[in-house]
Design a binder for these strands. Structure first.
Lengths: 113, 113
DNA sequence: ACTTTAAATAAGTATTTACTTATATAATAA
DNA sequence: TTATTATATAAGTAAATACTTATTTAAAGT
């Protein structure tokens, strides 16, 4: 089943991705779930700033959250209508896994489960 | 030859495309050159508003202009580093050629050459 | 219970954005 | 030359954006 993509809606998605923080977040999440506090470390931004970016991505349905204890993990919502579209964009971006590796080295990676 | 795409630069491109007017402009130009006054008709916006959108696209190198008499025609700049990236996005958008056909019916299409 | 940690929300602010109207530039037509 | 048409630029404005700090909510550890 393929729903017709509206150009206006695509513009909204692109505007959302047209921010280096959110775009990098999406690329990171493309490699697996990530926790809010990890993003705070990675981007060296205040926690509210990170939460607000994640909320915008969630409001658009691009990501979903899952609570695990005191942490909240975000992940790509593969069921979103625009997931195939977004994936095509993310696939063209350079890997950001070095950012997670740096976290790991600092011992700041939150191990889920 | 493939230049590495920087995620920050991609964010800038996406922000530029994250506007329904500019995104539609790019999709229309994907089908061939178009003149400023045609865009004014299509989008029913003031001429300065159209010119300003086109200038932003030109400043980023996504489009190029060519003067033909009193008209200025804009077209996709296929030599831009980000052209392959942008094309992948445009290819996923619904055709906008109905907009040009409507112009044609109204006799408002500028015939180049 | 109290403290700590993680995250969300609220409210305020500086900057950016997309428009507007007015004016300037440039080419063609009379 | 003068008028007309097409476009660009300038300046102003309302709304949106991405932050900030302060506060609230909620879970876990003591």
């Amino acid at each position: 089943m393929k729903t017709t993509i509206e150009i206006e809606q695509v513009a909204v998605i692109l505007k959302l991705l047209g921010d280096k923080t959110r775009l990098t977040m999406m690329k990171i999440l493309d490699g697996g779930a990530c926790c809010v506090c990890e993003f705070v470390e990675i981007f060296q931004m205040t926690q509210p700033a990170i939460s607000q970016h994640l909320r915008r991505l969630k409001d658009m349905g691009l990501v979903q959250e899952e609570k695990k204890g005191q942490w909240v993990f975000y992940s790509i919502n593969e069921n979103n209508i625009y997931y195939p579209f977004v994936t095509q964009i993310l696939n063209q971006l350079p890997s950001q896994k070095d950012k997670l590796e740096d976290l790991e080295k600092q011992g700041k990676r939150i191990s889920c489960c």
